[in-house]
Amino acid sequence: MVQSLNRTLDMKMAEDSSIILLGEDIGKDGGVFRVTEGLQAKYGEERVLDTPLVELGIVGMAIGMSINGLKPIPEIQFQDFIFTAFDQIVNQMAKMRYRSGGTITVPLVLRTPYGGGIRGGLYHSQSGESYFVHTAGLKVVTPSNPYDAKGLLSSSLDSKDPVIFLEPKRLYRSGKMEVPDADIKVPLGKAKLLHEGDSVSIITYGSMVPTVMKTVTENSLDADVLDLRTLSPLDRDAIISSARKTGRVVIVHEAPRTLGMGAEISALISESSIEYLYAPILRVTGPDVPFPYRLEDLYLPNTSRILRAVNRVLEFR
């Protein structure tokens, strides 16, 4: 995924001189995960800014650049560090179009790695997607493979609204696949059905996608697996049609359960399709505790927890 993101950024920067990257250690160092490797050498310090260590400044500057005709791609080194910039995201970025009656807009793509799996402890592992999904005016996107990473990034750059582009860092260097050199688009707001089945719908995204797929293939589950890809706005039609088909739903994500995406998806299905359901909708999520260092593996949802939930909804009567 790192390579795919890097090549996509490279291609887009070559096409469009208004694209500016800014963030901590993204230039000479190529970013702590190497997503921006080589781009400063190629496009210069004016287009790839190694910024001072100030997240709210990075985001605020990016908003100001966007207002004045640039297409900035700010990077927050770890999503865990985004909170000092939260005011800029929630009160400026997300509300600018609305509060200006549509006369000032902020198209930009804010990239940030999120989630666990790298022994990063409390402050290099959080999954904060709900904070952004809860905020009107933002689009929230998360790829689960190199192809989608390219296609979603490309579509995000076409968006006329700000996009929070969450990169599951655990998948940065896994899941090798062919990605075309040409530009590809994965539309925002569209989920992907990765596996088809009639007995249960497993709805997931980001870092949990490979874990869910492993559970399904190892246990030959007759399951729909839906990779949401965009968390805001959700692909309501894909969620509802799968839920109505199978009548049994499990939602899997790494973020804590309380007010996580699972809560929203569960409510959406209940409100629209309760009469199609044979079982309660279950969630398999990270627990409502801070993200741990040594006990990371216990925190992260795994195949056995997913399987247990699937069996519970299958056996429910």
Partner: peptide, 10 residues
């Protein structure tokens, strides 16, 4: 204020 800086950069 940070927006002003970004706008000046642009």
């Amino acid at each position: 204020l940070p927006l002003a800086v970004g706008t000046a950069y642009a």
